[in-house]
Write a protein that binds this DNA or RNA. Structure first.
Lengths: 248, 248
DNA sequence: CGCGCTGTTGAAACTTGTCAAAGTTTGTGG
DNA sequence: CCACAAACTTTGACAAGTTTCAACAGCGCG
């Protein structure tokens, strides 16, 4: 993770070619020479402390960001200030694509732990993706996967009940941790119950109760932010039987 | 809308350059010569009858589609067959972008009335957008706006109550009709109460009751699929006061 | 012309939210 | 390093909104 000269690392160009997230991130599938061109436009951004904003709703979109390390949430604000978490983002995932349409970010992006991101100036990315078809295709895939993810969230919010939503959420996290080489069965919830609730369209008390219930049933073990999934199959069963049940 | 030789119109190339939806659709902002190049890759598809599928979940993505006339819904299917409507689509809007990531459509697209679409082979579009920066940028904006729309739906599903969701839905339709030159205050609901409910994460009875209630209050007049918005300001007030209120 | 799909309305049940109080963890400053 | 404050979490009792179930009405399509 650290370079030999960590003290200036944040001023160096990010080295996609040396990044362990290559396969998950924007560079996926690029040839070495293409990768180098991408490297030339990507800036490593200074680290963000927990709670810092990567960007705010309404600010002009200059760049997209890829999470290098850490954890983010993006949240849409209501007119009167209440927040709705629209997504959680971990290493290798891209942020900011919602702002391309209007030229302004539509949501806040906040780091939930000390984090590092790579900054990709969007104009440069468009230019480069005209030159490198593979990059263009992959960028389209990334945007499309964001749309597909959103559809999944709509499904969740529109037609699952509380415990089913939470089960789906835990399985989703598990899978994403697994894809990054972490344990799929033991992980840390970087976000608060309130934030989980906001994402799942539920109140924090409901999240707390559902987690306690899962624990009582022996499906998971929770202690604070630590979660251990003990019976992934039962979680899966909860999610797939969801339809036909009331969303209420 | 019709060409001089309507009987063979469906075999002709679509003429974006002659289309009244130019400004809303993919060609927006293109210079005449660029428009012509786009014309060359766009095919007009045969008309679809009400209830026909434009594509189905799981089928390979070959093309994106732009609605020329008519009305569509896209719906994600649960494992066990129940549907969740993810969006409604009207003239000038694009369909199919959720399938780029995996190469397969993620949802069904069904016409809700007799409709016509333009087919845009996706490979050709990628190729052309490498040659025409304006097209590339506009395509990115269209995908991004879909993401932004999805975030709006999440907000709606995650933090509004029934009547607020319906108010937001009616205002959204109103605005989109207005953008197409139709009356913002009188329009036809192309979808059933069940489909509205599915989209809004509610049961059809709840939709029916809420519509009746709005009518009693003098906010709208409904008769079957006909809706007249009589007091748009009160609808707007319902939506913006939504936050802080329980989603349940 | 009738059958089925669609929509309406009522009453009861259930899920989730609200409010409240107490316990726990985390972070900060002395 | 400890103490304290703030933020977060848990749990209970109660309330409210939405769903469920059911019956009926209307419209449209064959």
């Amino acid at each position: 993770m650290n370079t030999v000269i960590p003290i200036v690392s944040h001023t160096l160009r990010a080295a996609c070619s040396a990044c362990s997230l290559q396969e998950l991130c924007l560079p996926a599938g690029l040839a070495p020479d293409e990768l180098q061109k991408l490297d030339e436009i990507v800036n490593r951004k200074r680290p963000l402390k927990r709670g810092e904003y990567l960007y705010r709703a309404g600010s002009a979109l200059q760049s997209l960001f890829a999470v290098r390390t850490g954890f983010f949430k993006s949240c849409v604000m209501h007119d009167d200030g209440r927040e709705q978490v629209a997504g959680f983002h971990m290493a290798g995932e891209m942020l900011g694509m919602d702002g391309i349409g209007s030229g302004n970010h539509m949501c806040d992006a906040v780091s939930l732990e000390d984090s590092e991101v790579c900054e990709i100036p969007f104009g440069d990315l468009e230019k480069l993706s005209r030159e490198i078809p593979t990059l263009q295709q992959h960028f389209h895939r990334i945007m499309s996967r964001e749309i597909a993810r959103d559809y999944g969230v709509m499904l969740l919010l529109g037609s699952m009940r509380a415990e089913e939503r939470l089960a789906a959420f835990l399985l989703n996290l598990s899978q994403r941790f697994a894809a990054r080489g972490y344990s799929p069965s033991r992980f840390l919830l970087r976000m608060t119950r309130h934030e989980i609730g906001s994402y799942l369209g539920l109140k924090l008390e409901t999240i707390s109760r559902a987690l306690s219930h899962f624990q009582t049933e022996g499906i998971i073990a929770v202690q604070n932010k630590n979660v251990e999934i003990k019976d992934a199959d039962r979680l899966r069963a909860m999610v797939s039987q969801c339809a036909g049940h009331p969303p209420q």
